[in-house]
């Protein structure tokens, strides 16, 4: 897979001597990209200043947040789609005391990974991921494929 053979997209920042926030090895062995590292990568690859790249990245996520606030889904082809799911109110419990606690109705964002990204992610199994996302299967995701 050609994409995986490219060098790290934010190696520009690494080469320029920026101390990295994460604790992993350089480039290939890194496990987490933060927003500021994404900004560095955009600045390097897009050949614009970091300040401009920061405005772009913030604008993208602001626009997406605002769409979700309007109850509008977002579809990014090849990446995935975001939808807003309404949840009914229910009576929960304080796990420590056992007291019933009313949980109000809420809206939560939901992401469905796109086909291309899904395949890309699955193909990355040869690479390690960080240890804090273990395989305990306790998440509430649904596993339907379509």
């Amino acid at each position: 897979m050609r994409l995986l053979d490219r060098r790290s997209p934010w190696s520009f920042a690494v080469e320029s001597g920026k101390p990295r926030a994460g604790g992993g090895p350089l480039g290939w062995g890194r496990w987490t990209m933060t927003k500021s590292e994404l900004i560095d990568a955009i600045a390097g690859r897009g050949e614009l200043t970091k300040a401009r790249a920061e405005l772009v990245v913030n604008c993208v996520f602001d626009a997406m947040t605002q769409a979700l606030q309007r109850n509008e889904g977002i579809e990014i082809r090849g990446f995935g789609s975001f939808t807003v799911r309404p949840y009914k109110p229910y009576s929960g419990r304080n796990p420590r005391t056992g007291q019933p606690v009313p949980v109000p109705a809420k809206r939560l964002p939901f992401f469905k990974v796109g086909k291309e990204l899904k395949e890309l992610v699955n193909a990355s199994r040869a690479y390690a991921i960080s240890g804090d996302d273990d395989d305990d299967d306790d998440d509430d995701e649904d596993t339907d494929d379509e």
């Binding site: 897979m1 994409l3 995986l4 490219r6 790290s8 997209p9 934010w10 290939w28 890194r30 496990w31 987490t32 990209m33 933060t34 927003k35 994404l38 990568a41 955009i42 690859r45 897009g46 772009v56 990245v57 993208v60 996520f61 997406m64 947040t65 990014i76 090849g78 990446f79 964002p109 992401f111 291309e116 990204l117 890309l120 992610v121 193909a123 990355s124 199994r125 040869a126 690479y127 390690a128 991921i129 960080s130 996302d133």
Partner: peptide, 22 residues
């Protein structure tokens, strides 16, 4: 470029943290 970079990063087995978003 933003989405392409995110895709490549996730495709290398790295997670992404966007503070304020998710």
């Amino acid at each position: 470029l933003v989405f392409e970079t995110m895709k490549e990063t996730l495709g290398r087995g790295e997670k992404i943290k966007i503070s304020g978003f998710g």
